[in-house]
């Protein structure tokens, strides 16, 4: 399973989720690219032994910032880009293992998986918060730059 293969799969998955939640046609491609780029950053974090949580955090910061830029560029709401691109970061595997172990009565393992789900979801939410901060910083810098250029 090569890196290129993973990136293609990430693009396809984001495209598919975009079709399900019905985002505008000409936003599909951009959303797919955001998903691919952020999945690449996640893979880099994994290769550097960063773990799933840090990878998800970096990924969601990337999604927040890139979606905001895409929203400005395409003149569309930014949720159109960040909901589909987030689909590859959903802790689906851990959530399933949690349900499975609860159903089988293995509560110690189930609680372990539940903690993983909570921590990953928390990392994604925190990533959005940091992305919001960066977005405001970017907007401020752009404003200052335009002021400098026009004066």
């Amino acid at each position: 399973m090569g890196v290129i293969g993973q990136l293609i799969l990430a693009y396809l998955a984001v495209l598919g989720f975009g079709l399900i939640i019905n985002i505008p046609r000409h936003a599909l491609n951009v959303a797919g690219w955001i998903g691919t780029i952020t999945w690449a950053s996640y893979l880099i974090m994994q290769a550097a032994d960063g773990g799933v949580v840090l990878g998800s955090f970096i990924g969601s910061v990337g999604i927040g910032v890139l979606s905001n830029l895409a929203a400005h560029y395409k003149k569309m709401p930014s949720i159109i880009f960040n909901i589909p691109s987030l689909v590859s970061f959903v802790p689906g595997s851990q959530a399933y293992q949690m349900v499975r172990n609860f159903a089988l009565g293995k509560y110690d393992q189930a609680v372990g998986f539940m903690l993983q789900v909570v921590v990953i979801t928390g990392a994604i939410a925190l990533g959005f918060l940091v992305a919001e901060l960066l977005n405001q910083l970017i907007a401020f810098c752009l404003q200052q730059w335009q002021k400098l250029r026009s004066s």
Partner: peptide, 22 residues
């Protein structure tokens, strides 16, 4: 909305690739 068949293609694209990635 996208027609149903396209949404089904979307569902196929989500389920297969994500299973391989996870």
């Amino acid at each position: 909305s996208f027609p149903l068949w396209l949404q089904l293609v979307g569902a196929a694209l989500v389920s297969g690739p994500l299973m391989i990635m996870f």
